[in-house]
């Protein structure tokens, strides 16, 4: 499978996430769209890792080139899990204070 197909697919998923962040006002949906973007990037990292692994296998059959990208994806998942727990706690606190999850409430931070 050519690498371009994977890039096009991941770009589509990423753009859907961007559109969601730009058009929705529900804070939880915005948060979910960020997760969608993270996953698109993860898939692209794995595809690139397999691309380099395939190229390195032809030179050396025992090569483990490209494993760094998969470790990277693992760490992205770790950080995303930590980020979600703190972010959802912030959203719950915001809902407790204002009884709405409108993202425009956070406008007040700007003064």
């Amino acid at each position: 499978m050519p690498i371009q197909y994977y890039i096009f697919f991941c770009l589509t998923l990423f753009s859907i996430g961007v559109i969601g962040v730009l058009t929705r006002r529900n804070a939880i949906i915005v948060f979910m769209c960020i997760e969608l973007m993270l996953n698109a990037v993860n898939l692209l990292l794995v595809a690139f890792s397999k691309m380099y692994h395939g190229a390195a296998l032809q030179l050396a059959p025992q090569s483990t080139a490209g494993i760094d990208a998969q470790i990277f994806v693992f760490f992205i998942m770790v950080v995303a899990a930590a980020e979600v727990s703190v972010g959802l706690a912030i959203i719950v606190m915001m809902f407790r204070n204002t009884h709405s999850i409108d993202i425009n409430f956070l406008n007040r931070l700007k003064n």
């Binding site: 499978m1 890039i7 397999k50 296998l57 494993i67 998969q70």
Partner: peptide, 28 residues
């Protein structure tokens, strides 16, 4: 991406290669 010439003809290795298995990943 369509204009990028470096990506021309690059293939993704599918259903082969061992780097995605748990043994090499855990070692790294």
């Amino acid at each position: 991406v369509k204009q990028t010439s470096q990506l021309e003809g690059k293939q993704v290795l599918m259903k082969e290669g061992t780097i995605g298995l748990i043994h090499p990943l855990g070692k790294a």
